[in-house]
Every structure is written in structure tokens, then in C-alpha cells.
């Protein structure tokens, strides 16, 4: 039973190769709101399963080490793959898989359940927001591919602004919760385990650089587009502001935990 729970959890809190199923589940969810919901709910279900079925990992010590090494591999692997993704929902799905995999370190360290849930939300929320923004972009352009028709900063300043900030939040930029979540992972691991995490931060830096370059820069060449309205912009900006504020407020507790 424990093994089944573990495998299901590895699908919901993605670990390679079961992460392929997680990604397929998110990708096939109906519409942008469905994908956003999947990103928010599936990892929380995984955490719920793990915390309500007994101790973490029915594995010997060596097995646990290998499991956690797979977690690091998953994080780096998906971050690396996100570098070449030019479709916003794919980019956010791959980047979210990269960040969500790290949740296993909190589970393994025996962190309180609500800390683990918040940790997962640090990656799920910006990824879910990106799914919604990708949907709005698709409505206007017929797809959310970046870099095909030039930069969108001039043509869709509001939408591209929201996409930019959400993407930054997803790759652990301060002052968003992802940054403090990464600090927590660094805090949990011993120094010799930190090198893959540094590599992960480097790849995220590269990934966001490519993403923003394709999103923002160049002269737009296509049909004239209508930007999102001020209400949607205000709501989006408000959610991102609260998200950042939440990160700042909780950062002290995470770091001190």
C-alpha cells in the first residue's frame, strides 16, 4: 500500500519518469483554467497523500538517497528542457515540474504539512497564472508561441507585463515566494548536495532570459491586437502583489524553520 501511495505521489509531485504522466495530465486538462487548476490541485493532492499515509518513503537509507538524487535530477532536467520551450503553457508546465520536484526535500525532512503545502504553492501559483495569461494570449493570437512575430511589449504591454512578472515569480526571483522556498531547500540540504541546486538556479536564469527575450523584444509583425482590459490587469497585478507580499511575510518563518 505504501508503495502505491509513493508511486501515485511521485506522479502528483513530479519525479522523473513519472513526471511524464504529471505533465500529460496538466497538458490535457481542458482549457487554460483547467490547466491552471491542475497545477494548483495535483501537487496538493500528492502532499495530502504522503502526509496521511504514514512516514515518508518505505525505503532504506540508500534508497532514500537515490530517491532524493532523482528529485534533483528531475528539477535540473525539466529546467533544462524549459530553456527551449517557446510556448508559454509548455514553458510554465516544465518550469513548474522543475520547482515542484523540490517539494520532496521538505517531505523527506519531516517539515510540517502546511509548510510543504505553501512550498508547493510557491511554484504552482505563478505557473497557474501563466496558464491563464497563455489562454488570453491564445485568444488574441491563435496560440501562445513567443518570438514568431516579434516582441509583444509594445503591442500588448499589459498582458506581456503580467506574463513577465509571473514568469519571474516562477523561477525563484526575489521577492517572490519561490526565492525563499529555494532558501529553505538550501537550508535543508548539506553543503555537498548544493551544487545541483546552483546549477538549477543557473539554468532558470538562462531559461527566463530566453523567455523574456522572445516575449518582449523586437518589432511586432502581425495583425493589430487588443490588449487586456484594465480590470483584468488590476486583478492580475493585485494577485501577483499579494503573492509577493505573502512571500515576504512567510519568508521569515520558512528560513527560521
Amino acid at each position: 500500500m505504501e508503495w502505491i501511495v509513493l508511486l501515485i505521489s511521485a506522479v502528483l509531485l513530479p519525479i522523473f519518469p513519472l513526471s511524464l504522466i504529471f505533465n500529460r495530465l496538466v497538458a490535457t486538462a481542458p482549457g487554460p483554467w483547467g490547466r491552471a487548476l491542475a497545477l494548483l490541485v495535483l501537487p496538493q493532492l500528492g502532499i495530502l497523500l504522503l502526509y496521511h499515509t504514514g512516514p515518508f518513503l518505505p525505503l532504506p537509507v540508500l534508497g532514500q538517497r537515490i530517491w532524493l538524487m532523482m528529485v534533483l535530477f528531475t528539477a535540473v532536467f525539466y529546467a533544462f528542457r524549459a530553456v527551449s520551450a517557446r510556448e508559454i503553457s509548455i514553458w510554465s508546465r516544465l518550469s513548474a515540474s522543475s520547482g515542484l520536484a523540490l517539494t520532496w526535500f521538505l517531505v523527506a525532512s519531516g517539515s510540517a504539512m502546511h509548510f510543504t503545502e505553501l512550498f508547493a504553492l510557491a511554484w504552482s501559483v505563478p505557473a497557474a497564472l501563466l496558464m491563464i495569461w497563455a489562454g488570453l494570449l491564445s485568444q488574441r493570437m491563435g496560440g501562445a508561441y513567443l518570438g514568431l512575430r516579434g516582441g509583444l511589449a509594445t503591442e500588448l504591454p499589459r498582458l506581456s507585463g503580467l506574463i513577465t512578472i509571473s514568469a519571474l515569480a516562477l523561477v525563484a526571483t526575489p521577492i517572490f515566494p519561490g526565492f525563499f522556498a529555494m532558501l529553505q531547500v538550501f537550508h535543508l540540504l548539506s553543503l555537498s548536495w548544493l551544487w545541483p541546486l546552483l546549477l538549477l538556479l543557473m539554468i532558470w536564469g538562462w531559461s527566463i532570459g530566453k523567455f523574456l527575450q522572445d516575449l518582449l523584444f523586437g518589432i511586432y509583425q502581425g495583425e493589430p491586437l487588443t490588449d487586456i482590459g484594465s480590470t483584468v490587469t488590476s486583478v492580475g497585478a493585485g494577485v501577483l502583489f499579494l503573492f509577493a507580499l505573502f512571500g515576504l511575510v512567510w519568508s521569515g518563518l520558512w528560513i527560521g524553520n
Binding site: G151, G209, L212, L216
Partner: peptide, 12 residues
């Protein structure tokens, strides 16, 4: 200046 691809490249 987001109209210039070069400024994005070098900012990157």
C-alpha cells in the same frame, strides 16, 4: 527599448 532585438540580446 524593446523594439530593438539587440538591446534584449545584450541585456540577456
Amino acid at each position: 527599448d524593446t523594439d530593438r532585438s539587440a538591446s534584449g540580446r545584450y541585456a540577456f
